[in-house]
Amino acid sequence: MNAFLSVQDLSVSFGKLRVINNVSFELNRGESLAIIGPNGSGKTVLLKTLLGLTEHAGSFFWSPDARLGYVPQKIDADRHLPINLQNLLEAKASIQHLKRADILSTVKTVGLPQETLRTPIGHLSGGQFQKALIAFALLGNPNVILFDEPTASLDELSEEHIYELLNELRRERGLTVILVSHDLSIVPEMADKILCLNKSTVCFGPPEEALTEEVFAKLYSEPHKVFHHPSEHHHRHHA
């Protein structure tokens, strides 16, 4: 069976600093992969590279029928814009020539009441906003979803709702899911496979096989170099 995603010797550097080093793995259709690792280990960079947002060495191949949906970290979205959820979803629907009915059905799928469409995005609760971002990603019917820190700054109940929703989507739509998280609690809830990342691959495989105590210690105890963005370095250098 051909892999849905095949990654070979993938490396990403910012200037002279290598943030991802020779990562290789494969993912089958319908599987769920959790990319875990400490802060600064390259998880988000890897996700963005798989979305085609970052220059890289090495290669990765999506199946030709892959349709990608992306859920960015909540904190990376500007919630101060004077738009409501309907404006946000209509923006994507308009760009991708989707039907208005798709917006209503997607909002229903993620479990948001229809009235939420009229709510300004800045007034949505943390859990509602996360669901709104998932609705945005689901619009256009993707068959793979790439999710950056799904439960960051959510309370336990909202976390549980997000896990339930993602598992439901996987069951009902056969969705392939790639999650990035610094939180290990996501693994038993969500992952068929796990990629432990600390710039290079520390482990890869089914969680019960891959995430041994030894690996865990290596992943989280070993001091790793703090990543500095080139612009940050530039400023410090001239300070």
């Binding site: 963005k48 979305l51 085609g52 947002l53 990608l68 992306y70 960015p72 990376d76 979205a77 500007d78 814009l81 738009i83 404006n87 946000l88 209509e90 923006a91 994507k92 308009s94 760009i95 991708q96 945005f136």
Partner: peptide, 19 residues
């Protein structure tokens, strides 16, 4: 207008959406 709003909301999301 839709492309502009989306690029302001999150530039990466806009690029992935085709902007």
């Amino acid at each position: 207008r839709n492309r502009l709003v989306l690029s302001l909301f999150n530039a990466d999301l806009a690029i992935v959406t085709g902007v």
